[in-house]
Design a binder for these strands. Structure first.
Length: 427
RNA sequence: UCCAGCGUAGCUCAAUGGUGGAGCAUCCGGCUGUUAACCGGAGGGUUGCAAGUUCGAGUCUUGCCGCUGGAGCCA
């Protein structure tokens, strides 16, 4: 029986299988906390109630020893969780020796080096369960709205956005790169399926060493045919509201374990505050930041801006120079790109980037030239504009940054089971 | 790549330039309801590496290595 179901088995004799989480004792009584990945339950062994053999075994159990325990489920207010197992028998699988992670505090380097074991701990367990629910909510949102999941390749022939550093992979004697976005493939896919999304890992070989960066992270990217910037902002707002609400309703227990202040998440409902880049610059100046029109925002600026609001903040119409070549320009002001970023509250920074795509062949060819990109690598992409071009928009949302915000974590590395960071690929 | 801080027991941390300690973990013992249980005892060290200053270096200096945070870049 799974530990999470034990509250429904009061009075019954059951067998659980799991690992020793911690042990406590007093005189002739032993308390064994057992976890099985679905929950933790306290098992009690009294010397007067069990055989000497079983009691001695209970006395010797070490942290993370694997075993089966048979006992009777009893409601007990003194037990963590309100129920305990009055133990009758123990079948030991393995007596663990010298488990490295003790119940006391540890540093991040040590814990990251033992990430495969750290995941057994209560808090890490809760975070990864929330991740699982979050991803399911993301997929459900798009699936329910008639989007088609169209996977985009991980090995790509050229840079999607040209500038950023890519991981190079030798591909039968040719150079290929790990994808940094499914974006370019989403666009022809939207012409084939109308509303599409891709979801998968993306890679950036940037030498970034901050709480917001991983070299391998997961992104979900919708692309919608015949949608303009406004349409896609509304989609993003609905999307974020939906996934936050879903985590709130499905992960109450896990949010409690990580001690998240859920009142802040309950405020996340569409629509979100929406300002232009130019207004953002004015607000930053008012806050005393030395910025000028044309600057891209750094982490510091993002934090100042997002702290002005309780909900995620939509910033749209950035200077075109700051943005990718495929962004459509604002017809009212050619210096502006029809793009929008969404900053998470509480200083978590950018979680969404997206916008309307340039759909005119001549203009896009000109941009490719201006950005000094190899045109021949983009011929297939230009075909989207050659054969029945259409207005379309999309965005990408970073799973780990979103999860870090939802869980109120100080660093994205805890939001993914095995984080890949600058010079860190073990375990 | 640059800037800052840190590196002492398996882990988390103390130690004025003058005999390297504590808590947890481990092992032994005690306690019949423990809550990161508690109480008593034991074992556990090339103080990241190399050189230098000094009568004497965990402590000061230089270099290297590693870690952490930040910047730039980005989701």
């Amino acid at each position: 029986m799974l530990i999470k179901d034990i509250q429904n088995a009061e009075g019954k004799t059951v067998t659980i299988a799991g690992w020793v989480y911690n042990t406590r004792s007093s005189g002739k009584i032993r308390f064994i906390l057992v976890r099985d990945g679905t929950g933790i339950v306290q098992c009690v062994f009294s010397q007067k109630d069990v055989s000497q053999q079983v009691f001695e075994l209970a006395d010797k159990l070490t942290q993370e020893s694997s075993l089966y325990i048979t006992g009777t489920v009893k409601k007990e207010d003194k037990a963590p969780g309100g129920f305990e197992l009055v133990g009758q028998d123990i079948k030991l699988i393995q007596m663990t020796e010298n488990y490295p992670i003790s119940p006391k505090e540890h540093g991040t380097d040590f814990l990251m080096g033992h990430r495969h074991l750290w995941l057994r701990s209560r808090r890490q367990n809760a975070i990864i369960i929330i991740r699982s629910q979050l991803i399911k909510a993301m997929r459900d949102f798009f699936d329910n709205q008639g989007f088609i999941l169209v996977d985009t390749p991980i090995l790509t022939p050229a840079a999607v956005e040209g500038t950023t550093t890519l991981f190079e992979v030798e591909y039968f004697g040719e150079k290929t790169y790990l994808t940094q976005s499914g974006q370019l493939y989403n666009e022809p896919d939207a012409a084939a399926f109308n509303k599409v999304y891709c979801f998968g890992p993306t890679f950036r070989a940037e030498k970034s060493k901050t709480r917001r960066h991983l070299t391998e992270f997961w992104m979900i990217e919708p692309e919608v045919a015949f949608a303009d910037l406004n349409d896609i902002i509304i989609l993003a707002e609905d999307f974020i509201s939906y996934i936050v609400e879903r985590v709130l309703s499905k992960c109450q227990e896990q949010l409690k374990v990580i001690e998240r202040d859920i009142s802040k998440l309950e405020k996340i409902t569409a629509p979100f505050p929406r300002i232009t880049y130019t207004e953002a610059i004015e607000q930053l100046k008012k806050a005393g930041k030395p910025v000028k029109w044309g600057d891209d925002f750094g982490a510091d600026e993002e934090t100042v801006l997002s702290n002005l609001y309780e909900k995620p903040l939509v910033i749209h119409r950035y200077p075109a120079e700051c943005k990718a070549f495929y962004m459509k320009r604002d017809q009212d002001d050619d210096k502006l790109a029809l793009g929008a970023d969404i900053l998470a509250p509480e200083g978590y920074g950018e979680i969404v980037g997206g916008g309307q795509r340039e759909d005119d062949l001549k203009t896009l060819e000109k941009r490719i030239q201006e950005y000094k990109l190899p045109k021949q690598a983009f011929e297939w992409y230009l075909d989207v504009r050659r054969y029945g071009t259409f207005p379309h928009s999309g965005f990408g949302l970073g799973v780990e940054r979103t999860l870090a915000w939802i869980c109120s974590l100080p660093h994205v590395r805890e939001t993914i089971p095995y984080p890949r960071m600058l010079e860190k690929v073990y375990p």
